[in-house]
Simulated scan of single mutants.
Amino acid sequence: MTVPPQPPAQYPAAVPPPPPSGRWQPERVDAMPGTDFGLVQLRVEPITSGLAIGSLLAGIGSILVSMLVVCFGLAGASEGWGGWVAGAFTLLSVAAGGGAVAIGVVSRRQIRRSGQTGQVRFTGAGLGMAGIVCGSIGAGIALLSLALTLVLQISV
């Protein structure tokens, strides 16, 4: 039994062009001197800064924990344990608020320095500022609530 000869392998089809959605669009084309070629630099789409998002989440967490300081401080002021519990949650709220402020400042610096040609451009400066504000407010509420709890506990 003989095997019939196979036709020669065909070359693969040409590489398809990029999708028409425009994901990869040239930002500029630089001619290469002395050749018929050019160098294409593609546009890089902006990305929301993860640091800015983290700053906002930490700031919101700081505000939520500061509400626990208020609740536990007022509930336990007359029984003597409110100051201890409020103090523990105050430390957590101030740590989260301070982290939110620090990360917010770093994210705004990252956003300001990004966006040069050919590099990733970060967005989210407003998120970073909101994280700074929420972190400051959360830490402030926690400290004021602790002071109120200690005053109430001492006066009772």
Rank of each mutant, 00 (worst) to 15 (best):
45 E>V: 11
135 G>N: 02
119 Q>G: 06
133 V>M: 12
64 L>P: 00
19 P>A: 14
38 G>P: 01
138 G>P: 01
147 A>D: 07
58 A>L: 15
49 S>Q: 12
12 P>G: 06
47 I>R: 15
10 Q>R: 08
98 G>Q: 13
145 S>K: 09
137 I>V: 15
18 P>A: 13
7 P>W: 07
32 M>T: 08
121 R>Y: 06
104 G>T: 03
105 V>M: 15
119 Q>E: 15
64 L>A: 13
127 L>D: 12
155 S>H: 07
58 A>H: 03
1 M>S: 13
54 G>W: 00
99 G>P: 00
87 G>E: 00
95 A>S: 14
37 F>I: 12
56 L>N: 13
82 G>E: 01
8 P>Y: 06
37 F>H: 09
121 R>K: 14
100 A>R: 05
143 L>F: 05
150 L>K: 06
20 P>K: 14
99 G>S: 09
149 T>K: 06
127 L>H: 10
104 G>Y: 01
148 L>C: 04
140 G>Y: 06
79 E>R: 12
105 V>N: 14
7 P>K: 11
115 G>W: 03
13 A>H: 08
39 L>Y: 07
143 L>W: 04
48 T>W: 05
116 Q>R: 14
84 W>P: 00
85 V>C: 00
150 L>W: 06
40 V>W: 08
20 P>C: 12
37 F>C: 07
119 Q>M: 13
116 Q>K: 15
118 G>R: 10
96 A>S: 10
13 A>W: 08
68 L>T: 06
60 I>T: 15
44 V>W: 04
139 A>P: 02
31 A>Y: 01
134 C>I: 08
100 A>W: 02
27 E>I: 11
2 T>P: 07
140 G>K: 07
117 T>R: 12
22 G>C: 03
52 A>L: 01
144 L>Y: 03
8 P>M: 07
106 V>F: 08
145 S>G: 12
78 S>P: 00
6 Q>C: 04
112 R>S: 15
115 G>A: 11
21 S>Q: 11
21 S>Y: 06
87 G>A: 01
56 L>D: 05
98 G>N: 06
45 E>Y: 04
23 R>W: 10
33 P>C: 04
33 P>F: 00
126 G>Y: 10
139 A>D: 03
148 L>I: 07
71 C>H: 09
6 Q>H: 06
50 G>C: 13
113 R>F: 10
105 V>W: 14
74 L>G: 10
14 A>R: 13
14 A>H: 08
156 V>T: 15
134 C>S: 14
88 A>G: 04
2 T>S: 11
141 I>Q: 05
89 F>M: 13
19 P>Q: 12
9 A>E: 11
153 Q>S: 11
8 P>G: 02
43 R>K: 14
89 F>V: 06
135 G>M: 10
32 M>F: 00
22 G>I: 04
57 L>Q: 14
72 F>V: 11
14 A>Y: 07
62 S>N: 05
88 A>N: 04
25 Q>E: 15
124 G>M: 01
15 V>K: 11
98 G>W: 07
130 A>V: 12
137 I>P: 00
78 S>M: 07
36 D>T: 10
103 I>R: 08
50 G>F: 10
112 R>W: 11
